[in-house]
Simulated assay, not measured.
Amino acid sequence: MIRTFLFDMGNVLAFFSHDKMCEQMGGLCGRSRAEIQKLLIESGIQWEYERGRLSPAEFHSWFEQTVGQSVDIQALQTAGSDIFELNSTIIPVLDALKTQGYRLVLLSNTCVSHFEFIWNEFEVLQRFDDYVTSYTAGAIKPDPAIFQCALEKIQCAPEEAFYTDDIVEYISQARLLGMQAEVFTDTETLISQLARREILV
């Protein structure tokens, strides 16, 4: 019997674009999208930010030093975070699960800026009972450490938890730990996956 549902955030609860992020951040300093992608994504700095090894202030300082000019910190946070579109079709699913008494836990690779943006912009994260984020866990999926944090939050046996994520590798890791897990492709498919487990939403 399933007691807890774990949801990824990016491309499950809300769709996002790293290309848009790099383009908007580049617009603040006269750099191209490709240049920012190389500085931010290919260098691994974004993943360090998502591991919580940089605070927003430290990330801002890194960005200014890297591009060689001053950039307003609020403008930088907006450029880097205003990249999400709510998956509105998932809201009725979350509400139905809550109504039926299931526990909802977020399990997401994300930085504090992105989490706070989604919290403030959309009323979706407020539906969750607990949160496992890479920046608080100090690890990003598929690192075992973040999944261990999740096991502590689910308040049930691993086999009583269901996890959905758009990344196949992360689903594989969850299954190794004993969770029920399915790759997220779209909400309609998720509803079918739940129906096969006799959960109707």
Rank of each mutant, 00 (worst) to 15 (best):
M1D: 10
I2D: 02
F5W: 09
D8Y: 10
G10N: 13
A14F: 04
F15T: 11
S17Y: 04
H18W: 04
H18R: 11
D19P: 09
M25V: 01
C29K: 10
G30P: 06
R31E: 05
A34G: 08
A34R: 13
I36T: 12
Q37M: 10
L40V: 06
L40W: 14
I41Q: 15
S43N: 02
G44H: 15
E48P: 05
Y49L: 12
E50L: 13
L54N: 03
L54R: 11
S55P: 08
E64Y: 10
T66C: 13
T66S: 13
V67I: 02
Q69E: 08
S70A: 15
V71S: 01
Q74N: 01
A75S: 07
L76I: 01
Q77C: 11
T78Y: 09
F84A: 02
L86Y: 10
N87Q: 03
S88T: 15
I91D: 04
V93W: 00
L94K: 04
D95S: 07
A96S: 15
A96F: 09
K98W: 01
K98M: 03
T99K: 08
R103F: 00
L107I: 13
N109R: 08
H114W: 15
E116F: 05
E121C: 09
V124W: 03
L125W: 03
R127D: 03
D129Q: 07
V132Y: 08
V132Q: 14
G138S: 03
I140Y: 01
K141V: 06
K141G: 10
A145C: 04
F147H: 12
F147Q: 01
A150G: 02
L151I: 05
E152F: 07
E152T: 14
K153G: 01
Q155K: 09
P158E: 07
A161M: 10
F162I: 05
Y163A: 05
I167C: 10
V168H: 08
E169T: 10
E169K: 02
S172N: 12
Q173R: 06
L176V: 09
G178Y: 00
M179W: 04
A181V: 03
V183F: 07
V183E: 15
F184I: 02
F184D: 06
T189E: 10
T189Q: 11
I191S: 02
I191V: 12
I191L: 10
S192A: 14
I199C: 11
L200N: 11
